[in-house]
Design a protein around this nucleic acid. Structure first.
Lengths: 202, 202
DNA sequence: GACTCCATACCGACTGGTTGGTATGGTCGA
DNA sequence: TCGACCATACCAACCAGTCGGTATGGAGTC
């Protein structure tokens, strides 16, 4: 499997379409049209629609991998500051066209969690992997700074994901990313509060 | 329009099915089977599938209305305590079968926000109304207690909704309501922190 | 109270468009 | 010439929506 431009284009198109209209509303012909190929090509690369979705979930996981590292460790040597910067980044990423800030995995899960267990697990893995990276960052920050309250790095990472996913749902409802920003503002305030305990103001 | 048992059964069945499998995966015949009526009856009461969804959105809004009041004002005279109790209640409501703790409006919005603008607005209204009630409660608590930070009641109400919606998405992904509890625990801690400012410990 | 008239509620076989998937054949590089 | 890659025509299942028909009960008339 060395590149295959058609295949890659199909996967990318599928991700975009799912992010916009969801999985069930996305027809294979839509994907083909968006990718600029025909159905023959589609079913040459994928044996079924679900197969494409699986590939798309993998591609999405790949995209999400290392998102934490986007916030350079060089610029923010302190993991706590890196965590704050990460939250700010996530906030800023929610802007512009809807299809650009929507989460493929979250959209898929909500729609097919009962009907397509294998697909659900693939998408879940994508989220879990990212949450794991975030938890590691939180844990690093925790080791270097005192924190308020009794909580684990895993649970806070989960909470962050929840706020983001929920903010996206609300933003879709209002057709306006601004509501997501409000939620992320509160999240930022909360996390900073947790790490600003006991006279540790930044 | 005085009752109409068949119609009511169809609406209730639709709400359950959407909460489980989503809107597109729900067939008209599924709704009929679940409601114990035939297709003929269905299309007598609703002129299209979308029409049923609209009715279901209304019914859902009705269900959600006054959820804040479930936390009795008599038992919690202080609106701040009522707010805390509300958050606890929301946490406890996420338990048991998936179909019982899922949000109809959130599920719908995520799936049809682009393809069915009218349906999206109906579901959005359901959320907006509930958020409004919550904001009023927050505002009342705010007037009676000093708070930390610079934020509005509306934005905090929105944040609460976001955490809940996001927690549900994560719970669906893991097929386990426990993850939602973790997120709501953090939310509870945050809100209490906001209201516990300046020596106002409960 | 018997009769017509009609509206509402309901039934279930049928239809026609949509759509995931297939069959077949062509092109091009090795 | 073989096989990877892709195009076109086609198929069959699925499903929202239709349509002719039945049952029930209430209003009006004599």
């Amino acid at each position: 499997m060395v590149e295959h431009p058609s295949r890659t284009k199909l996967v990318d198109a599928a991700i975009d379409l799912v992010r916009g209209k969801g999985y069930n509303a996305m027809r294979v012909e839509d994907v083909c049209a968006a990718a600029g190929v025909t159905k023959g090509s589609f079913f040459h690369h994928f044996k079924a629609k679900d197969d494409l979705a699986l590939a798309a979930a993998d591609a999405w996981r790949e995209r999400a991998r290392g998102l934490c590292d986007t916030v350079s460790a060089a610029r923010y040597p302190d993991p706590r500051d890196r965590l704050f910067a990460y939250l700010d980044l996530r906030r800023e990423l929610i802007a512009g066209e809807l299809v650009d800030w929507t989460c493929f995995a979250g959209t898929m899960i909500q729609e097919i969690h009962l009907t397509h267990p294998d697909l659900r697990d693939a998408c879940q893995q994508s989220i879990a992997e990212h949450t794991g990276e975030l938890a590691a960052l939180i844990e690093a920050a925790r080791r270097r700074h005192p924190v308020a309250g009794d909580w684990t790095a895993d649970s806070l990472a989960l909470h962050v994901q929840a706020v983001i996913q929920g903010a996206l749902v609300l933003a879709k409802g209002r057709q306006d990313p601004a509501v997501a920003h409000q939620a992320l503002d509160h999240l930022g305030r909360y996390v900073r509060q947790l790490f600003a305990a006991e006279g540790n103001a930044a």
